[in-house]
Computed example of a mutant assay.
Amino acid sequence: MAVGDRQVARWLCQLIPAQCPFERDIQLWGHHLFGIPSMCKLNPVFEELVGLRFPSLSFLADTWGEDVTRYC
């Protein structure tokens, strides 16, 4: 899917997280107890969303020359 609108591209970059939001590290008093692995690789919807995020970032950076580090 091609992104052709600057506002839509910004909205997608803000809406879709850069990394899986479900991965967690459980810590107690600064010590790592265990980690909960992400389930995003098993969810095809997340893969499609990430597939929309990258073209949006590229559109903003290449077409508009916008600094996209705030979305990372």
Rank of each mutant, 00 (worst) to 15 (best):
L52Q: 15
K41C: 10
D67L: 02
D62S: 14
F59Q: 03
V68M: 08
R10T: 06
L28H: 04
S58E: 00
L57I: 06
Q7H: 11
I26R: 10
Q27P: 01
V45N: 01
F34T: 06
F54H: 07
R70F: 07
N43W: 08
N43Y: 13
F34V: 05
M39K: 00
W64C: 12
A9C: 14
I26V: 11
R53Q: 09
Q27H: 03
V8S: 12
E48W: 15
P17E: 02
L28Q: 02
F46V: 03
L12F: 09
S56F: 10
L52G: 01
S38H: 14
G30L: 01
Q19F: 02
C40V: 09
T63H: 14
G51C: 14
W11R: 07
D62R: 15
E23C: 13
P17F: 03
E66A: 03
M39P: 09
Q14T: 10
E66D: 03
L57T: 05
L33A: 14
L49I: 01
W64V: 14
G30P: 01
R24E: 05
E47F: 04
R53M: 14
L42W: 07
I16M: 04
L52S: 08
V45R: 00
L15M: 12
Q14E: 04
Q19W: 08
R6D: 09
H32T: 02
N43H: 13
S58A: 05
G65M: 11
H32R: 03
S38V: 12
P44S: 09
Q27R: 07
G30N: 01
A2I: 15
N43R: 07
F22K: 14
I16R: 09
A2Q: 06
C40P: 00
Q19N: 02
P17V: 14
G35D: 01
W11I: 09
Q19R: 15
P37T: 15
E23R: 07
N43V: 05
V8D: 12
F34A: 03
T69M: 06
I36M: 05
G4T: 12
I26T: 12
V3L: 05
R24K: 13
R70N: 15
S38K: 05
G51E: 15
L57M: 08
L60D: 02
L33P: 15
Q7N: 11
G65D: 14
G51T: 08
W29G: 04
R53P: 08
C13R: 08
V45K: 06
R6G: 07
W11L: 03
L42G: 08
E48T: 04
D67T: 14
L42V: 11
P44T: 14
V45H: 00
P17T: 07
L57Q: 02
F54K: 01
G51Q: 12
L28C: 00
P44I: 13
V8A: 12
R53S: 09
H32P: 00
M39L: 11
G35T: 02
C13L: 13
W64T: 15
P21E: 15
L52E: 10
P55D: 00
L12E: 12
Y71G: 04
I26M: 10
F54W: 10
R24S: 08
A9W: 01
F54S: 02
I16G: 11
A2Y: 09
F59Y: 11
R6I: 04
E47K: 13
K41H: 11
P55M: 04
